[in-house]
Design a binder for these strands. Structure first.
Lengths: 330, 330
DNA sequence: GTTATTAATGCAAACGTTTGTATATTTGTT
DNA sequence: AACAAATATACAAACGTTTGCATTAATAAC
């Protein structure tokens, strides 16, 4: 392995000069820099990141913490962040929490130990108190995305959950559904509580009553979606806005099992636009997130040391599960 | 930050003793070790991985290279590997190649620079020549999974592609399909060529002719699946074994568009058992891979310095798209 | 021509750990 | 009691980079 000392010897200068030349310090002559760079290239030099990190007390790794990498949304966010960060010379260390608080703290700890340059994170559902996160991070910058804690400092990238849930609910109402319920997520999580607020506002703006018994909390899994849908149907519901696609899927299965037909008897709109949404039959209407873009924005927030909150719009994909108007036209 | 020197001073010993005590060297007295460990804990000591890595010339990071993290198969392999590696004190650095050779070499380079302890890898489809991989790795151990090059040294973990494709094809034949084609992958990739061999053997064992015109190469995408299915149907095919689920999906859509009914007029079995396979209507029969287990096995192969090749069985999930027998019984 | 100013490089001390070799201590053997 | 063997710890040199401070060389100011 060739080191800066080797280069220095070859050129009759000191390692400091080589180091400065290679890291673009303005303290070396332009000509020297060129010579050094050339020699480095010809000798096949590669900077030893370990040594560099040790000395600088900070690595060129960015940590990303997500609940689960196999959720399409998160893997796409990761992909987006990676595309920006790799470009900028950073590597990405990915940790999964599986929605568990303990695993989340463990991950933060791991990243701290690796002295990552920054942490991009979407917190676990279990997490209610953000204070330990701040503590575990120390002075490492934090960029939150999707699921964010307002009270933590640093940049944030979120979806327009309120507006999109509003739009999705209005869409159901516009299709003639009159008793619209919702499969809500965990309300301690702002992304989910915002969706609930948007849903509620849509009902109110349409002159429909907001009925607490049609709000199913902590309902984002296929199983809980199934149960909630049956209860909802029992309660006279004829449509559901779901804060997730998996619970929407469970709901559709339950309703079909009950003999109801979508979108004729019942309308559903999900959130996340998982691949299966468009492949099911009937296909599931869903709010698509610009996950890749969200990752890019989060990564840039770190690179530019932004502290801003960016809002990214979701996109309503209207499909068979809610589109009664076009079915009628057929 | 508290260092081993701090601990040493507090105890009146030298850093070397502390280092040895903490890393479990047999060269310190049992009593000393206990005292050191206790003091370390009480002082809140954490080993500086940068310094450790620099000195040892090797990091406690394992690199994983996959074509795409959002493929469920790969994200589950990653999850499995992570579960073992984290336990053993390693962290995981994930790189995507997007099936591109250049990105693959770049990733290897990155990992080499980070002096990873090992690389777990499933190569890109574009890659035909494994030599540059070996070169880029230097003396870093390699564990290949799913898509492997026999000629490279090191452990390998693969599916029983030959046997499973054989079983899937036999299943189609047992359901009365008589002209079975296949959507094959890139045959330079052993995983795919093995599936083709299994398919062929099944035909031969069943007394059916192997017809090259029913073999569609490089066909693993939704779009190519669509085209191939139409050609296949034109050629008198009544069933397809597909080496991927996305091409199987495209094929199903094309056939339905053509007015054919599954499984009545046409049978399909895919490979990978993506989530959508069970959710579609008709649901798609598919060969499920034990992805999580594959990740665990690959990680263990590294930890135990194994050089062996492990074969993991796939599982045939029989669903509506191929199950004509049970439909008839209805 | 002397002095102040700037520019370019050199010097040397870190960063925190690991490890080969040396030293001191204990134990065992005769 | 003397010596060998073992055990336990200390010493010191790395690992390759970065960076504050010192030094030298070049330019500008008077």
């Amino acid at each position: 392995m060739v080191t800066i000392t080797d280069i220095a010897k070859a050129l009759g200068v000191t390692p400091s000069t080589v180091s400065r030349a290679l890291s673009g310090s303005p303290r070396v002559k332009e000509e020297t820099r060129r010579t050094v760079e050339e020699t480095a290239r010809s000798m096949g030099y590669e900077r030893n990141v370990m040594a560099s990190n040790l000395r600088r007390g900070r690595s060129s790794i960015v940590g990303i913490i997500v609940p689960r990498i196999y959720r399409e949304f998160f893997s796409n966010v990761i992909g987006g962040a990676e595309s920006i960060l790799n470009e900028a010379g950073y590597n990405v260390l990915i940790c999964q929490t599986h929605e568990r608080r303990e695993a989340e703290l463990q991950a933060l700890h791991t990243l701290r130990k690796n002295q990552v340059a920054c942490v991009l994170m979407s917190h676990a559902i279990e997490t209610e108190d953000p204070a330990p996160i701040a503590e575990a991070l120390g002075d490492i910058p934090l960029v939150q995305f999707d699921r964010v804690f307002r009270s933590l400092p640093g940049a944030k990238v979120v979806n327009d959950n309120y507006e999109s849930a509003y739009a999705a609910t209005r869409h159901l109402i516009a299709n003639g559904y009159r008793r619209v319920g919702t499969l809500a997520g965990h309300l301690c999580c702002e992304a989910f509580s915002d969706r609930l607020r948007g849903y509620r506002k849509a009902l109110e703006d349409s002159g429909l009553a907001y009925d607490e018994s049609l709000v199913f909390q902590d309902c984002i899994l296929r199983e809980t979606g199934w149960d909630a849908a049956l209860q909802a149907a029992e309660a006279g519901c004829d449509a559901l806005y779901s804060a997730g696609d998996f619970s929407a899927l469970g709901a559709m299965e339950a309703l079909r099992w009950k003999g109801l037909s979508l979108p004729r008897d019942f309308g559903i709109v999900g959130t996340a636009d998982e691949t299966f949404a468009s492949l099911m039959s009937p296909s599931l209407s869903s709010l698509g997130q610009h996950a890749f873009e969200m990752g890019r924005v989060a990564a840039k927030a770190f690179l530019f040391r932004s502290q801003a909150t960016t809002v990214i719009s979701m996109e309503l994909h209207i499909r068979e599960s809610s589109n009664r108007n076009s079915i009628c036209q057929k």
